[in-house]
Amino acid sequence: MKTDDLIAMLANDADAVAPQVWRQRYLMAMSAGLAGAVLLMLSLLGIRSDIAAAAQLPMFWVKLAFPAALATGALLAALRLSRPGIALGRVGTLLAAPVLAIWVLAGLALLRAPEDAAMLVWGETWAACLVNVPLLSVPAFIALFMVMKTLAPVRPVAAGAAAGLLAGSLAAIIYSLHCPELAAPFIGLWYPLGMLIPAAAGAAIGPRLLRW
C-alpha cells in the first residue's frame, strides 16, 4: 500500500474525537478501583471496630491523608505519562513531599520516646500491611492498566510504575480504615513499602502490557 493510499484511508472517516478523554477514563478507573478495594476490605478484613473513637485522633487523619496525597501525585504522574510528549514536571516533588512530611513526624515520635522505638516502627501488624495494601490494590491496578492501554505511554516502565503506585495509594487509603496502627514511624515505613509492591509490579509488566 502506498503512503498516500494509507493517508486517504485514515482520513476517510475522521470521526470527531472528544477532547481530554483521559480525564474521564481515569476517573472511572479510580472509582472502580476504590469500589473494588472497599468490597475486598469489607468481605476479607472489615473496618476497625473502634473507628468512631479512632477518628477523634489526629493520627487517624494523617494516616488517611498520607496515601491520599501520594495518590494525587501518582495520578498526575499517570495522566502525564499516558500521553506522548507531556513532561513530568514537578511530579517528583509532589510525590516526595508527603513522604518527607511523614518522616518528619516519624522522627519526632522517635525522639520523644526512643525507648519505644521498636514498637513505633514495627507495630503489631506490619506483615498484614505488606499483604493487604497490595491485595486491595488489585482492582484499581487492573482498571488503571486497562485505561492506560487505551492511551499512548511512551515510557512504559515509568507509566506502569505510576499506575501501580496510584493503585497502591488508593488501596492504602481504604486499608487505613481497617489498620489499627497509629504511629508515624509505622506509617512512614510500611505504608510506602506496601504501595511500592504494586508500583514495582507495574514497572515490571509495563513494557510488555503497554506497547502500542
Binding site: R83, P84, G85, L151
Partner: peptide, 21 residues
Amino acid sequence: QRHTYDLDQPLTAWIHAIARY
C-alpha cells in the same frame, strides 16, 4: 492515538514523542 493529543500541548512535542517512540 489522536485522542491523546491535548489541545494545550505544542503539536511538535506530541508528534516528536510518537515518532521517537
